[in-house]
Design a binder for these strands. Structure first.
Length: 698
RNA sequence: GGCUACGUAGCUCAGUCGGUUAGAGCAUCGCACUCAUAAUGCGGGGGUCACUAGUUCGAUUCUAGUCGUAGCUACCA
C-alpha cells in the first residue's frame, strides 16, 4: 500500500438478488475480508462495503412468477445474503442495496453528465418482443430449437447440446420463456454509451498499475477487436431506474450495479457524517479497489472506469481479480452435490475451516482454486488442530495445573520468540500482495518450529522433577507466546479463533504489541479452541446439496424435462453475475401444425462440397434443388465429415425458406439438417431412394 | 482456428532471473515420545519437473513445436 493515511474503499462484486450465495461467491468475500482485516490491523482507514444487486429482468420475472412484488423478493434475498456473509465472518462496514435512493441519484447524475458531454447516443435496434407480455426479451428469455443441431428447448444465445451460438431470431420455433408466445421482431430506441471514445484513456488506465500485467493481453484482445457502443437502456417493463428524460427507458442493470459500490459507500458515509462527494472527485487522494471474479472483468475494466472518467469522477485504483472455484477438480455440479450454498456449508462446518483452506491456496493471480474436499478435511485438521492449536493445548495444561494459570516472568528461549516476531514483515507483505498461500506456508513453518521446540524441551519430563518447576513454567510460557504470535499473524484469516485465543490468553492480539512478550500474568484454563472435522460431515453436506437441487427443481418447474445439470446459471463456480442468464425453464415446446407448415423443407442433391479452409467447422455446399435452381449453403459439420468429396451426389434435407445469411466466407442460402450431439457425432438427414431434387418434405 | 494461461511426488501446492543429490504439507512405511483434540518429533520410500526438438559446457527452469486442461475470441443459418 502507498500512503496509509488516506481512505481506502474496498468492495466485493455485488451478489445478484436472484439466487443464493454459494462457495464460489464466498471465495471472493473471504479474500477481500482477509485483506481488509489486515489493513485494519495496520491502522489503515479502510471501509469495506458491498450490496445486493437487485435490478433487471430476471428479478422482475421471478417476482411475477411468485406472484409477489420485486421489492418483496429482493428484500427477502438481501436478508438471506446478509445472513450468509455474517456467517462467514465477512466484516462489512456496510451492506446495502442497488434499489436505493442513493443509487438512483448517483446513477442519474453520472448518466446526465455523460449525456451532456455527448457520450450517449440513441439508436434504433430490432429485438424479439413478447406480444402477450408486451415486453422485449433478453436472449436467455427466448427458447427454441437449435438451428444447427435441432436440439429442442435451447436458449436464445447458444445451444447447450452442440455449443452453437446464434442470435435468438435464428431459433427454430422460438418461444417466450415467460408466456410461451411466439416472439416477434420489433424496433425500439436504445441508449448507448460511447465506449470507443475512451479507447485512449482506457489503454492508459490499464497500464497504470491498476491491473495485474497478466491480464494486459486479455484486455488487449478487446482493444484489438475494437470497443463497441454499450447498450445501457432497456425498455419498459423493467425493474430498475428510469432514465432521466425518457418515459419508458430504464438503465440496464449492469449500469447501476457498479454504481451500487458508491451508493453503499455514500449511505454509510452520510450516516457517519462524513463527506462523500470529496471521495468521488477526480482529484481525490483516497483509494478504491474492487475485488471481482474474472467473469466480470469486462464490466470493471472498461465500462466502469470509462463511465467514471467520462463523468469527471475518480476511477478505481486496482482491480483484484480472482478465478473460479472448482470442487474436487471439476466445475461445481448440482447433480454431484458440489454446488454448495453458503448456508448449506455453514450447517456442517465452521466458517473458519473454509476461510483457512481458501487462504492456504490463494495468491494474487487469477488462477482457479480447487476445493478438494478430502484435502480440505486433512488440511484443517493437521494445520489448525494438530499443529497450531495443539501448541496451546499441550503447554497450557502445565500452566493451569502447576502454576495457577500464571505465566512465568521470563522466557526460556527469547531468541526463538524474536525469530517468530521477525517474520512480521514477510507476513505483512504477503497480506498486502494477497499472497495468502505463501504467508500461511510461512506461519505453518513457524508452527513446526514451535512444536519441535516443545519436543526438544520435553516439558512432560521436566514436570516430573519439582526442582525444575521454574524451568517448566518458562518453557510453557515461551510456547504460549509463540502461539500468540502465530495466531496474531493468522487473525485476519481466522477472526473467531483469534477472538477465542485472545480470551484464553487474556490479552489483545495486535500487530503492534507482537514484540512485547506476555509475562507474569494469568491466563484462562485451556478449552478446545478448534474442533476436528471429518469426511462424514462432507458427505452430509454433499447429500444436503443434492437435496437443495431437488427442492429447487420441485419448486421451480414441475413440467420441464430435466437434463441433468444443464442449467447454466452459476454452474461454473462463477462468483458473481447471473444477470444475463435467466434461470427459468421454458414452456413446453409444443407447436401447432400451422407452425410446422411455416417450414419449407426440401430434398436437395449435393453438387459439390468442399472445406472452408479458414474455418474449422464449416463445409461449403452447392445444392441442386431441381428446375435448374442451385443454392450455396454452409454447414458446420466438418468435424463429422472429414471427406467432403464423398458427400457429392447424395441427397440432404435443407430448410428452403430460411432467410439468407451473410457469412465471412459468403452467403448461406438455407440450412442443411443433421442430427446428433455434435463433434464427430453429427449425421446428415437424407431421403430414401426415389426422391428428386426440390421435393418438399411434408 | 486465433489469443492467453496452466500441466512439478498418490493428493494439494511451492520453487528454479539455467548450474552440484528438485522442495513442503497431507497420505504411506519405520523409529522415538506420551504433555496435547490418537496430537508431536526423527528417519525412509515415492517425481524421466506433460511430450519432442533446439539454444547452451549444462534445461525442470530459455526458445519452438506437439499433446492435454481452462478461459476469452472468430466461425458453426
Amino acid at each position: 500500500m502507498t500512503d496509509k493515511s488516506n481512505t481506502l474503499l474496498v468492495t466485493c462484486a455485488l451478489p445478484y438478488a436472484n439466487g443464493s450465495i454459494h462457495l464460489g461467491h464466498i471465495l471472493e468475500h473471504i479474500q477481500a475480508d482477509i485483506f481488509v482485516r489486515f489493513q485494519r490491523m495496520q491502522g489503515r482507514r479502510v471501509y469495506f462495503v458491498c450490496a445486493d444487486d437487485q435490478h433487471g429482468t430476471p428479478i422482475m420475472i421471478k417476482a411475477q412468477k411468485l406472484g409477489r412484488t420485486p421489492e418483496d423478493v429482493i428484500g427477502e434475498m438481501e436478508t438471506e445474503h446478509r445472513r450468509d456473509f455474517a456467517g462467514f465472518e465477512i466484516s462489512y462496514d456496510h451492506y446495502y442495496r442497488t434499489n436505493s435512493p442513493e443509487n438512483r441519484e448517483i446513477s442519474e447524475k453520472l448518466y446526465t453528465i455523460l449525456r451532456d458531454r455527448g457520450y450517449i447516443q440513441v439508436k434504433k435496434i430490432s429485438q424479439l418482443f413478447d406480444p402477450e407480455k408486451k415486453m422485449f426479451l433478453p436472449d436467455r428469455f427466448v427458447k427454441g430449437t437449435c438451428p444447427r443441431c435441432h436440439a429442442e428447448d435451447q436458449y436464445g444465445d447458444n445451444c447447450e447440446v452442440c455449443g452453437a451460438s446464434y442470435s435468438p431470431a435464428e431459433l427454430i420455433n422460438p418461444r417466450s420463456v415467460i408466456s410461451g408466445a411466439v416472439p416477434v421482431m420489433k424496433e425500439s430506441e436504445h441508449y448507448f454509451f460511447d465506449l470507443p471514445k475512451f479507447d485512449g484513456f482506457l489503454k492508459e488506465w490499464i497500464n497504470s498499475g491498476s491491473l495485474p500485467k497478466e491480464m494486459a493481453n486479455k484486455l488487449q484482445e478487446w482493444f484489438d477487436a475494437g470497443l463497441q457502443q454499450w447498450d445501457i437502456s432497456r425498455d419498459a417493463p423493467y425493474f430498475g431506474f428510469k432514465i432521466p428524460g425518457t418515459e419508458d427507458k430504464y438503465f440496464y442493470v449492469w449500469l447501476d450495479a457498479p454504481v451500487g459500490y458508491l451508493a453503499s459507500f455514500k449511505n454509510f458515509m452520510t450516516s457517519k457524517g462524513i463527506d462523500f462527494e470529496e471521495f468521488l472527485k477526480e482529484s481525490s487522494d483516497s483509494e478504491m479497489v474492487h475485488f471481482i471474479g474474472k467473469d466480470i472483468l469486462y464490466f470493471h475494466s472498461l465500462f466502469w472506469p470509462a463511465m467514471l472518467h467520462g463523468a469527471g469522477c475518480r476511477v478505481p485504483n486496482h482491480l483484484y481479480v480472482h478465478g473460479y472455484v472448482t470442487v474436487n477438480g471439476a466445475k461445481m455440479s448440482k447433480s454431484k452435490g458440489t454446488f454448495i450454498k453458503a448456508a448449506t456449508y455453514l450447517k456442517h462446518f465452521d466458517p473458519e475451516c473454509l476461510r483457512y483452506y481458501y487462504a492456504s491456496k490463494m495468491n494474487g493471480r487469477i488462477d482457479d482454486l480447487d476445493l478438494n474436499l478430502p484435502d480440505f478435511v486433512a488440511r484443517t485438521n493437521s494445520d489448525l488442530v494438530n499443529k497450531l492449536v495443539n501448541l496451546a493445548s499441550r503447554t497450557a495444561v502445565f500452566i493451569t495445573k502447576k502454576f495457577q494459570g500464571k505465566l512465568a516472568a521470563s522466557l526460556d528461549n527469547p531468541e526463538l520468540l524474536d525469530s517468530f516476531v521477525a517474520a512480521r514483515e514477510e507476513i505483512a507483505a504477503g497480506y498486502n500482495a494477497r499472497e495468502y498461500s505463501a504467508l500461511i506456508r510461512k506461519v505453518m513453518e513457524l508452527a513446526d518450529d514451535a512444536n519441535r521446540y516443545v519436543d526438544e524441551k520435553a516439558p512432560w519430563v521436566v514436570a516430573k522433577d519439582e526442582s525444575r518447576n521454574d524451568e517448566l513454567q518458562r518453557i510453557c510460557t515461551t510456547c504460549l507466546n509463540l502461539y500468540r504470535v502465530l495466531i496474531t499473524y493468522l487473525s485476519p484469516v481466522l477472526p473467531k479463533l483469534a477472538r477465542d485465543s485472545a480470551e484464553f490468553l487474556k490479552t489483545d492480539l495486535s500487530w503492534d504489541n507482537l514484540g512485547t512478550a506476555l509475562l507474569d500474568k494469568e491466563i484462562a484454563p485451556f478449552k478446545a479452541l478448534f474442533k476436528r472435522i471429518d469426511m462424514k460431515s462432507v458427505e452430509a453436506m454433499i447429500a444436503d446439496s443434492k437435496q437443495d437441487l431437488q427442492d429447487l427443481n420441485a419448486s421451480e418447474n414441475k413440467t420441464a424435462a430435466k437434463k441433468g445439470e444443464t442449467k447454466k446459471d452459476g454452474q461454473s463456480g462463477k462468483p458473481s453475475d447471473g444477470k444475463s442468464k435467466g434461470n427459468e425453464d421454458a414452456a413446453p415446446g409444443i407447436i401447432t401444425i400451422d407452425d410446422f407448415a411455416k417450414l419449407d423443407l426440401r430434398a436437395a442433391k449435393v453438387i459439390s462440397c468442399e472445406e472452408v479452409p479458414e474455418s474449422d467447422k464449416l463445409l461449403k455446399f452447392q445444392l441442386d434443388l431441381g428446375n435448374g435452381e442451385t443454392r450455396q449453403v454452409f454447414s458446420g459439420i466438418k468435424s463429422a465429415y472429414q471427406d467432403p468429396a464423398a458427400l457429392v451426389g447424395r441427397f440432404v434435407i435443407m430448410v428452403y425458406n430460411l432467410a439468407p445469411r451473410k457469412m465471412r466466407f459468403g452467403v448461406s442460402e438455407g440450412m442443411i439438417l443433421s442430427a446428433g450431439p455434435g463433434k464427430k457425432d453429427i449425421f446428415l438427414l437424407s431421403a430414401d431412394e426415389g426422391v428428386k431434387p426440390g421435393d418438399r418434405v411434408s
